[in-house]
Write a protein that binds this DNA or RNA. Structure first.
Lengths: 224, 224, 224, 224
DNA sequence: AATGAATGAGCCTTCATTCAT
DNA sequence: GATGAATGAAGGCTCATTCAT
């Protein structure tokens, strides 16, 4: 637990807002959990609303620190970087151990934006999205207009996003054993990468014969 | 406006919950909008929570009636049915005219399930999902195990879901003119279908030369 | 204590506001004193502010009922009516028994007007003031313009008003025994009437010799 | 603005208390306006209550300095001195330029005395009142007992006090043009003086014929 | 069956005050 | 001596719920 009272409140608020939403969470409970006075929220943040915004920013900042973008050595094949990117995004979204409340909080912001959202997009989402578009541009050899690249980028993000935003429903649609075996972040990343590369014509088609697959393709190496 | 007071409340509640969430919506406002007494909610539904659950069920029922699954004549090619399915799903999710509050309400349920969710999944989502899996199974000629089909199905749903759940963020990532031109339900449906068929090896790859495209392919006809 | 909860709150609020002012009085204490719930104020009046306004109106209404204007038989001499009017005004302002909280509340409104004040003036103060002007007009035989009459009227009201608004200070300036003997409502009324009539030349001058006083003057009879 | 922080607080507090009353004014705003720390009030004055008392004293001291009693040369006629006294009192109460917050603050104290009041009376009001009584005693040639003089003195003070304490209500009772023309401090002083002298038999009666007025009367010269 | 009156619990916020520095 | 950080208490208000009718 952080030393600073402000940070403790920020932490408790993030968890509470992630769990119960802005209206559902109470400053009383937040302060209680943070071991601070009720008036501390207004003292440090002026307002419940402002506390919310700060906690969203804090959450996204801390999540980015926890799971930073990969650093690729020069010359890393684009297909491999795509796989790493998807893997990294899923790891950030889904977490490995405990469910990341930071992401659940940001997910609320994405679903129903408030003032905190635009900042979130500009500082955090757009830069990541641009990295993805750069990788895709390289994969298709610059042959596609940006509008098309964006559509493809959104297709990739969407596949991952579903697991984060509708994870419980996915869990109901998929048998439990399959869920544990196939729908792990790592396996999903493999699937999404393979699916995308196949659609872009730089990887084996999904469900194709083994003969279709060129074992020397760098894209294949990247996902294995 | 429905004659029955109970139905009027159900309607008003659905809209209010979709707009403000469970905590944000107030029983008073709902009853006011429904032209009913404050006590009516407790009288008809016993509880705000129970009203919420009922309004979720009601919303999904009414949305299914508004946008039913397409009925295909026997012999309709699978690729065409895939396109129709995606188009139908997007239409249901995004609506054509006014934003469908029913879907926004269900989206809340998907993001953070309550007791109403399992029923929603079983009655509404799973049947639709199974139709999708059937189409996919036919497209790949039965060569893929169900686990793999489900992953592909989720990939398709995810691409559509993103526009519904994170529409505002998409709107920030994409230039306005492109948004109006390319990210309409119809155009998204085309893209998702084409993207999926390409990945499955039964359509032209995305960004391939025109020469790659077989003009006689039924899948192509389906999306044009 | 009134049966109706609304009336009990109105009563308690009037007393509390008179005692502590708008800011100083708390709805909690008011409701406690009225034996009502905290939410009752918002239920019946919507607002602390609105409760205040209603309690001011209520106070002045009830005070007017308690101490109505005198009814004079036709032919009552103007000087006698002046005396009665002043006597009545002082009685209403100062009360006979316990200090009238209604007047103290209205006094706050007079000193620092809020929304309730204009209504108070039109419904209550102006009609009384007009009665006074009518009496004065008769006393001076219609020889004075209204502007002058108003000045004289304000001179009369001011003499009485001081005892109400600055009663405590008067109590400090005047020796206690003299206070009890000379500064009673009745004696003040006599003084003010005599002072005014003298100034208007229709009564003996103050401090004049006994010879100055015409024992047959109706004005003199009125004040004795 | 004073150099000393204590004085700056005193100034800001006086204005705030005059405007909003004791409960309505906040220590924070006062310190902000004074450019001082929040803790300064408790440091310099120990208490909000103590600050209030000090600010009342400070206000009355500063107001007396601003508008001191007139100094009359020996032999100035009593009637003239009466007029000057009234004029001076009205000027002090009503101010010439901006509304004097000092007086508004003292008015609160007069209406609802606190611990600061007795001191205010002894140091400030009583001396002034005694001067008035001295003038009146001279006017009536010592023929009246002190109790009677006090009553007359209060009658004079009351006429002026009404304009200060109930100025807004007076403004509602009197037509606007008449207000601007007749109810200025100077004109009120004339009226009060004339009214009083007439009552005391040393001036023309109000509303009397021109013939009633003795043009050589010193009292008349005083008010013109 | 259906409703208007009434309420207890709890929420966000403000404020005067204190304490360590 | 003087101050910025922090807090306990309380205030106005809202809301879901109940109860008598």
């Amino acid at each position: 637990m952080p030393e600073d009272a402000r940070d403790r409140i920020l932490l408790a608020a993030g968890q509470a807002f992630a769990e119960h939403g802005f209206e559902g969470a109470t400053v009383r409970d937040i302060c209680l959990a943070a071991g601070a006075n009720v008036a501390a929220v207004n003292y440090y943040f002026g307002d419940k609303r402002r506390l919310y915004i700060e906690s969203v920013k804090h959450a996204h900042r801390s999540r980015v620190e926890q799971v930073p973008l990969p650093m690729w050595p020069a010359g890393t094949p684009a297909a491999e970087r795509l796989h790493d990117f998807v893997d990294n995004m899923l790891e950030r979204m889904l977490g490995f151990g405990q469910p990341p409340w930071q992401v659940r909080l940001m997910m609320r912001e994405v679903l129903q934006p408030t003032d905190a959202c635009r900042e979130l997009v500009e500082d955090y989402i757009r830069p990541h999205f641009d990295v993805l578009l750069g990788i895709l541009d390289e994969i298709v050899g610059g042959r596609l207009p940006f509008a098309e690249l964006r559509r493809i980028g959104l297709s990739i993000v969407g596949q991952c996003f579903l697991y984060r935003a509708a994870g419980d429903v996915v869990g109901m649609l998929v048998p439990p054993d399959e869920l544990a075996a196939v729908h792990t972040p790592r396996r999903i990343a493999e699937h999404v990468t393979r699916f995308t590369l196949a659609a872009l014509g730089t990887g084996p088609v999904i469900g194709g014969d083994a003969a279709d697959i060129d074992p020397t393709s760098p894209s294949l190496k990247a996902v294995e």
